[in-house]
Amino acid sequence: MNGTGRVKDMLHLYVHYVSLNVRSAMQHKASFFLQITGQLLTSCTTFLGIYFMFLRFHIVAGYTYSDVLLCFSVVLMQFSLAEMFARGFDTFSGMVRRGEFDRILVRPRGEVLQVLGSKFELTRIGRLLQAVIVFVYGVFAARVHWTALRVLTLVSMLLGGILLFSGLFLVYAAFCFFTLEGLEFMNVFTDGGREYGKYPIDVYGKRMQQFATFIIPYTLVQYYPLQILIGRSDNWVYALYPMGALVFLAACYAFWRFGVRHYTSSGS
């Protein structure tokens, strides 16, 4: 099979997986909608937290309430989309524990594709919905004037963010090959990235900003492009920064491969 043929075939298979996931979820409609509501409520409390803080304080590190809302909602969109697609990696410990990864290894397809397909989490629409609502509210509150550059920046941020968080989920899953115990720590980067990403990263000080640029490049999908979105900068290069997440993802994938190799040599 040639290159495009193979990609098409993989895409076709992935869509097949997704449709089975959706149909499975629809078998329990009540549960499905309750979970969506739950997701919506969860992020509502985060929003309320920001609201309460800004009732007391009117500005933080130079950012206004609406700036923070834009930042928060974009990060939430990135995260919920990544979670929707890459949930299979987020729940990978269960898969290893139940021995289901063995099943994946005895099938003639890439492991990543199969794990991605095993779980397409449609309930994350709840979170996504909340993020979109806050975003719209933020856009009006900040009176964002839409230019081609800003639209491009937003798209680029979303794409880069999905890649970045997916990479983190991939690393999380790769750790499952080594230990099923110490995984909690990865939450700092996944859930933490979402929770603390609600404020632009320079709020946390210079050192954190450096960490979030060179170790795990959150700033590439959040702080830098955000400057364009909230009208602090016109530098179009910032709009391309989120694509740096691709490099990060490649590194995460290398680690995943390393994990798979460890798994097949330790057999547990």
Binding site: H28, A30, L34, T37, G38, L41, T42, T45
Partner: peptide, 18 residues
């Protein structure tokens, strides 16, 4: 009493936490 313990958990947990 619920059909969806998962939904219930997520909802209660997030509200109580907050």
């Amino acid at each position: 009493y619920t059909i969806s313990p998962m939904g219930l958990r997520i909802m209660v947990a997030s509200v109580v936490e907050f």
